[in-house]
Nucleic acid binder design. Structure first.
Lengths: 190, 190
DNA sequence: TGCCATATAGTCGGTTCCGACTAATAGGGA
DNA sequence: TCCCTATTAGTCGGAACCGACTATATGGCA
């Protein structure tokens, strides 16, 4: 059946418009404020394209075009009833069904052999250090928001990525250790 | 500095051409044979675009154009010395430095609240079941290849994704349980 | 008051990506 | 021998995506 707009940025736009009408630039700054800059890739070009696509399919619609002083016009959008329905259905589907996602790291790991054992172990250990830093950052962010009294649910995706990073970190360290110990044998032809 | 070709499919192409010269269609079928269809998104259009981009930057080059019977011409490519160097350098970088990747599930989780507690828990439990199946599939694939006497390193990325899926599964189950038990409070305005 | 950094708001052209479509041949069964 | 399907091989137009660039206004400080 294949949804009309697949870009996840569209999900963010719909989510924001369910709260209140906004113009695109405001969407971008609101998302950044809420620490969603690492959940959604907020690129101005993509954002305006996405908003247009959503409008074309009547998931959102322009409600007014204001001009303040000599600044460029701002077109304010609101969600439609169709948009609200699609938002929830899409969300449901995204949570229920894992979809293939081809991350760069998996691609690289599939050719790990080409680095040779020493360089591969080095690289994995360096990655592990980077991941540890990011986990620290996530913990700080989580502590801050909870400290401000915000409900945990508002940062639930940060809890998830923290968990995922931890698992990746564990794997990187274990695999590096296996390479160092020789328990992960290295074929000659690499 | 920003690499010339970023598509990970280019990494797969280079990896294959380091073994021996091939024409694009052969690359695609070889990758599928080796169970790399879930590591790289092998789309004919993308593949031919990628090969062209690699050729433009002299990481690979056409070595011959053969025509058998009335079939379309097949252009066979080989890697260049530059291509070999870039391959290893790129690989190294991809392993060492985690890069931001915006997966759809994270986007959805960030709006989990919109599903309401019951539907959210349902959806997470269903995802957990799907993940369990995939983990089973990965285990089967791993057992088969090891059974055939292939070195573990040839399927190392499957070990990684298996680990990542397991972590995701654990999180999904734990979070669903927290929602069911009420220990993850649900704000009213969602 | 002159200047610079930052915030506001969005445009534009190019690259990448996608998947439906084309087209020929080989193999197998009725 | 005719037809159907699978395999081989690749093309093409459009959609999505990106990020550098434009342009105005505001605030602070030297």
């Amino acid at each position: 059946m294949s949804r009309k707009v697949r870009n996840t940025l569209a999900l963010a736009v719909l989510g924001l418009l369910l709260e209140r009408p906004m113009h695109p630039y405001e969407m971008a700054s609101t998302l950044r404020e809420r620490y969603k800059g690492s959940t959604f890739k907020i690129n101005p070009g993509s954002l305006y394209d996405t908003v247009e696509a959503l409008a074309k399919h009547r998931w959102i619609e322009p409600v007014e075009t204001v001009r303040e002083g000599n600044r460029p016009e701002r077109t304010v959008y609101a969600h439609t009833e169709l948009g609200r329905q699609e938002f929830v259905a899409w969300l449901d589907e995204l949570v229920r069904e894992p979809v293939a996602e081809y991350p760069k790291f998996v691609a690289a790991v599939s050719y790990l052999g080409a680095l040779g054992p020493d360089r591969a172990a080095d690289a994995l250990e360096e990655r592990a250090r980077h991941l540890a830093e990011r986990i620290g950052g996530a913990d700080t962010a989580l502590a801050e928001t909870v400290g401000k009294g915000a409900p945990r649910l508002f940062m639930i995706e940060v809890e998830f990525v923290r968990h995922a990073w931890q698992a990746e970190l564990d794997w990187a360290r274990d695999t590096a250790a296996e390479i160092r110990s020789g328990s992960l044998p290295w074929p000659k032809n690499f």
